[in-house]
Simulated scan of single mutants.
Amino acid sequence: MNRRDLDAFVAHYGLSAEATDVVLDLAAARPAPAEFRLFLVRVLQLAGVLSLAAGLVFFIAANWQDIGVTGRFALIQVVIVVSVALGLWKPPPHALGRYTLLMAFIATGALLALFGQTYQTGADVYELFLSWALLGLAFVAAGQWSVLSAAWLVVFNVALLLFLGGRPSGGWLWTVFAPFRGNLSLELLAPALLNLALWWLAEFGRRVRWSAFEARWVSGLALACAFGFLTGAGIDAVESSMMDGFDVLALLFVLAIEAALVVHAMRLRNDVFPLALTAASVIAIVSCAVMEHIDVGDLGITFLLALWLTVSSTVSGRVLMSLVREWRQAGEAA
């Protein structure tokens, strides 16, 4: 019996805490000491890789004047070459291969940052992260590891945030944003759609058992990034004192996309995460609209917002928990 079946068994017979402990022990449902040790080892290994990567950056920064230009580049390049060589020697899914490719991915970003800092190329910061993401695709494809995929996703979204925040006057990336250019609320839809495409890819990869997307939280991270941009687009649209046609269009797009995701989640009936993100997004957008367009004084707006947040979050929470119980029971019955 899995943990869900055990929970249903305990709930059905109304077992006490002592009886529940006995059931869990008999079913060997508690993590064994060996499993705890394995988890701790993996956490420490990942922490070690991240510490080595941070140490590489800090070592170069602390000895900037002493190492010299050639030494700085050589040090990072040696780390990348050694990491790739170890990854080829013990390729994924071997733990050494995965950790060394993660190290190579991080070192690639450090190398690009060093290049920009040394030669003062004048490139925008977003170009560093975008180049990092493009070069890092090779490591993600070779690593086939959810942690590496998530790291790439974070770097890619940082590049998008920096691009939209800086709003550079030129650059080839504007070809992607060309249909949305001219209005920030519309421009924010482009990264949202990109993240939705990545979410779909991650969900598809998980269904066909791609190792890079074996963990469900990777697709959840992509979906959360998409909702972050959707919420930003909606807030930017409603915060305009006089909403123009582009703002209205952006807001309609946001609501349409979120409604489509709600319909998709209700059809699958296996995950309330899209519904929770939609609820949070709508609550945030409506709260900003209330603050911008309803003039009832400071005290009135404070009371109105408190009332709206209390009611909306309570109703959303109750509905979501009800759906969780309903879908879980339907899954157990099936």
Rank of each mutant, 00 (worst) to 15 (best):
A133I: 09
P168C: 05
H94V: 04
L299K: 05
L188D: 04
W210G: 00
V10T: 04
Y99I: 08
W145P: 03
T118W: 09
S240N: 14
P33L: 00
P91W: 00
D247C: 07
G122E: 08
W200Y: 15
L162M: 09
D244H: 10
M103H: 09
T175Q: 14
W89C: 09
T70N: 12
V262C: 13
N270E: 12
Q65A: 12
L252M: 15
F115L: 14
R30K: 13
E187A: 08
V248D: 00
A192I: 03
A141M: 12
L56G: 04
F9I: 00
I106Y: 12
V218K: 11
A74E: 10
H12C: 04
A250C: 01
A47D: 11
W327I: 03
M1R: 06
F213H: 12
V69E: 15
W200K: 15
A151K: 02
F180Q: 03
L40M: 08
S313H: 14
W199A: 03
D236R: 10
A202C: 12
V41G: 01
M243G: 08
S312P: 06
P191E: 07
R4E: 14
L153D: 08
A265D: 07
R42Q: 08
A29V: 05
V69F: 13
Q329G: 11
W200H: 15
F229Q: 01
S146C: 07
A212F: 09
L96K: 05
A54M: 09
V69K: 12
L189I: 11
L223G: 01
T302V: 13
V23P: 05
L44D: 03
E332G: 02
W145C: 07
L196R: 06
L173H: 01
G109K: 02
L275W: 09
V248C: 02
A47K: 02
R318A: 14
D295A: 14
I76Q: 06
L88S: 08
W199Q: 03
T118Q: 13
